[in-house]
């Protein structure tokens, strides 16, 4: 009887361990898929431009506020094509960018790491006093784009800010947390 009991604990431990391994390790791998980005892009390459007249290229040259105060976000194909209408550097990825998108007049389907759901409204200009990196990954010093993980169930990026994070900051800053401030 006592021997039996001893053995009985082992399966329990095994099950316990298996659940832990599954839950913490395997489950996330199943839940998220690394979608990456449609093409490569080097922020450092653009910011530390070798060409003289482009050396003072700044973040806001591509990520700017429109006239109506809305934020342009990822630059459109037209913005990119202003310079890259033809291949300039001989870098292969640039050549594919030009041939695949610029020449075909097809917008690059960038995946947005902070792409919020349709029902979320966010005003960049209202948060203008904060550093970009308080919410976004530091891209200024990134030579390549980080992997983009998509939640297979929800379709959202793994890295988006969750509501409680918004709320926490708003509470800290003594700003309203009214629902309609951020939902549409």
């Amino acid at each position: 009887m006592s021997k039996k009991k001893k053995i009985g604990l082992l399966p329990f431990a095994a099950g316990f361990a298996a659940a832990l391994v599954f839950g913490w390790n395997i489950f996330p791998q199943i839940l998220y898929s690394n979608k990456g980005q449609p093409t490569t892009f080097s922020h450092t390459g653009h910011l530390n431009h070798t060409q003289k007249d482009l050396q003072d290229l700044d973040c806001v040259d591509c990520h700017y506020y429109r006239a109506d105060g809305s934020f342009a976000g990822t630059p459109s194909l037209e913005s990119c094509a202003e310079c890259h209408n033809e291949p300039l550097t001989g870098v292969p990825s640039e050549q594919t960018f030009v041939s695949e998108y610029v020449k075909k007049d097809k917008q690059v389907p960038w995946n947005t790491y902070q792409g919020q759901p349709d029902n979320v409204y966010f005003s960049h200009i209202a948060h203008d006093t904060y550093e970009c990196t308080e919410c976004h990954q530091d891209m200024e010093n990134a030579d390549s784009l980080p992997p983009y993980y998509e939640n297979k169930l929800t379709g959202y990026s793994r890295d988006i800010m969750k509501m409680h994070e918004c709320e926490r900051c708003h509470a800290r800053e003594n700003t309203s947390n009214a629902c309609y401030l951020c939902h549409k």
Partner: peptide, 21 residues
């Protein structure tokens, strides 16, 4: 919603112009 989004847009425009939203 009284087209609440239009208020949001108006506030953004005001901010862009440097006015009090």
């Amino acid at each position: 919603t009284f087209c609440h989004h239009r208020w949001q847009i108006a506030k953004e425009e005001a901010r862009k112009r440097g006015e009090n939203p």
